[in-house]
Design a protein around this nucleic acid. Structure first.
Lengths: 133, 133
DNA sequence: GTGCTTGCAAACGTTTTGCAGACTC
DNA sequence: GAGTCTGCAAAACGTTTGCAAGCAC
């Protein structure tokens, strides 16, 4: 990834290294705030705006993706770990759904509307087993 | 709808009447801001916070629903017109998808996770026919 | 008259931006 | 040394809230 950055004329800085470490470390959905906190050891003063700017850059490179799980902040992940998400409106539980769940919907929408869906960018809301009355 | 309000002990005010008129008038996705502007004739000083409060109330009554089409503001519709939405990441085009598109996904998610999806609350992003390269 | 509703202004949480200084190459 | 990155502070955005005055019932 560092080479990718260099190849693009971008600089390899302490904060970018720290951010990548955090991303590779525990690869589950984390907000920009989470990542900033996690990075605090390696780069104590890394500002939240720098986190956003670097996540943006990494997203442009295709290394990370962000997902909106609901009304709160977006969460970030390595792009190769992208999954669909089911989020419960009542308890907030997040279920990671394997991509192939969307295959049929994908095909049908493609056929009928010529539309190519990206089921990872927004979570699908609903009610989980426990919260259905 | 006015009777529904009264039955619930709520008051029928000028702004509520105006909001309902706007909602029934042109029933396509509109933001709170849009609605406030549209109402401006009937209730010139209706504040945006009042619009939000009344939309909230109507949503609790089951008369309207709101949908997140992407990164911008939420859009509101009469509940009986609820549809799934496909939104193009590139050009912003919105395709309304009939509910039965989601039937299979619904059934599969139900079976595998006991999860009951609400495919109207968040739009599904992707690329429309024209924007796919 | 009771108490729900309203306008206003200010706060909220998340994200973006402008700027001067610091750093990578 | 050129030009990218950073911290900071402030703004942007959509939405919510507290409060005193206003209105429906």
């Amino acid at each position: 990834v560092l080479d990718l950055l260099r190849a693009r004329g971008s600089r390899v800085t302490t904060s970018r290294r720290a951010l990548l470490h955090a991303l590779f470390d525990t690869p589950r959905d984390r907000t920009a705030e989470d990542l900033a906190a996690e990075i605090h050891d390696a780069a104590p003063d890394m500002n939240i705006s720098t986190v956003y700017r670097n996540l943006d850059e990494l997203e442009r490179l295709g290394v990370v993706t962000h997902t909106h799980l609901g009304h709160g902040p977006a969460t970030y992940n390595l792009a190769n770990l992208a999954r669909g998400h089911l989020v419960c409106d009542s308890c907030g539980a997040v279920i990671e759904a394997p991509g192939e769940i969307f295959d049929r919907l994908s095909a049908e929408v493609e056929l009928r509307f010529g539309f190519d869906i990206d089921p990872n960018h927004f979570a699908i809301p609903g009610k989980c087993r426990g919260c259905r009355q």
